[in-house]
């Protein structure tokens, strides 16, 4: 791009590729109005005392003060952190392992792929309900094992406030790892056969080839998977509603549910906006260093 601009007749940059630019106007407008505009609107109104209807009566940081003084919000944040870290690591590990196993040219690969991807076709509400039943101590796993004769067996994560978030995590991973597996599988298929041959000639064991050669080569695939998992984590809501409704007590509350409850059930828009702004801020805090590493690094190199 920069090399051609040295000629005497310097074209006006704005008019270059005019058709393409006109065609992208609707997209740009949508992005500006819907994403940027609405975000700005939300942040602005989070500094007001809006109740059921938005009104511009500014109260400074009052909503944020209240937010961070609320136990339910703090529990939500803690839950999201646990759920987020575990879900990120486990989904990646399980997704990649399954993909690697399928990539070893197993028989009935299509069948296995379909079975493993199937949970992803279900809505979170269905997944949540199914796991609510499986984890129910009176009908589910616990009762089945007890019926086998192991009377003392206890497994009721959804009814134990200390570990309830992991009960939700199980369902989240069951749902999400299939998709990650498929993405990883696509990435693995993109690896040249010759690399495998070269590794075999050098006598590198298979597991080491994966860890040292293949995974670094799959970096773009991992980034895609990471973004998909991360966005799923921040917006987790329906799974919790279907499985526990935030219970027992407030032990499995999540930020998105806090936002919904405050905006609609408690008729306090500003409090909900403040909470959603905090969610946005946390996403940005994670996103900026990553974007800097990903894009800032490339230019220099």
């Amino acid at each position: 791009m920069a090399t051609s601009s040295g000629t005497s007749k310097r074209p006006v940059r704005l008019l270059r590729n005019l058709n393409a630019k006109i065609a992208s106007i609707p997209m740009v407008a949508t992005a500006l109005v819907i994403f940027i505009g609405c975000t700005a609107w939300t942040i602005l109104y989070s500094f007001t005392d809006s109740k059921l209807l938005p009104r511009l009566n500014f109260v400074g940081f009052e909503q944020y003060d209240r937010l961070w003084g609320t136990r339910r919000w703090l529990v939500s944040i803690e839950n999201l952190a646990w759920y987020g870290v575990c879900s990120l690591v486990l989904t990646l590990v399980i997704g990649f392992t399954l993909a690697a196993l399928l990539d070893r040219k197993v028989r009935f690969e299509n069948t296995f792929r379909t079975i493993l991807l199937y949970p992803f076709a279900l809505s979170f509400i269905v997944t949540g309900l199914v796991w609510q039943w499986i984890l129910n101590p009176d009908f589910g796993v616990q009762q089945v094992v007890r019926n086998w004769g192991w009377e003392g067996f206890t497994f009721d994560p959804l009814y134990n406030p200390d570990i309830v978030i992991f009960g939700i995590l199980i369902a989240g991973i069951w749902q999400g790892s299939g998709l990650i597996m498929v993405i990883m599988l696509a990435g693995l298929r993109g690896i040249d056969e010759d690399i495998w041959k070269a590794a075999r000639v050098d006598g590198i064991p298979t597991w080491k080839t994966y860890v040292v050669v293949i995974i670094p080569m799959m970096r773009p695939v991992f980034v895609t998977a990471l973004v998909l998992i991360a966005s799923g984590i921040v917006k987790v809501y329906d799974l919790v509603v279907a499985q526990t409704s935030g219970g027992p007590g407030i032990a499995s509350e999540v930020p998105a549910k806090y936002v919904y409850d405050k905006m609609f059930a408690s008729q306090n828009l500003a409090q909900g906006f403040a909470a959603s702004t905090m969610m946005l801020v946390s996403v940005i805090i994670i996103l900026i260093p990553w974007a800097y590493l990903e894009f800032g690094g490339k230019k220099r190199g």
């Binding site: 027992p248 007590g249 407030i250 032990a251 409850d261 059930a265 408690s266 306090n268």
Partner: peptide, 18 residues
């Protein structure tokens, strides 16, 4: 107000279950 009721509900849910 619905807001105050919501806050008391949050408190009570936690209190009754913990």
């Amino acid at each position: 107000s619905a807001d105050t009721q919501g806050q008391i509900e949050d408190l009570m849910v936690e209190f009754w279950n913990d």
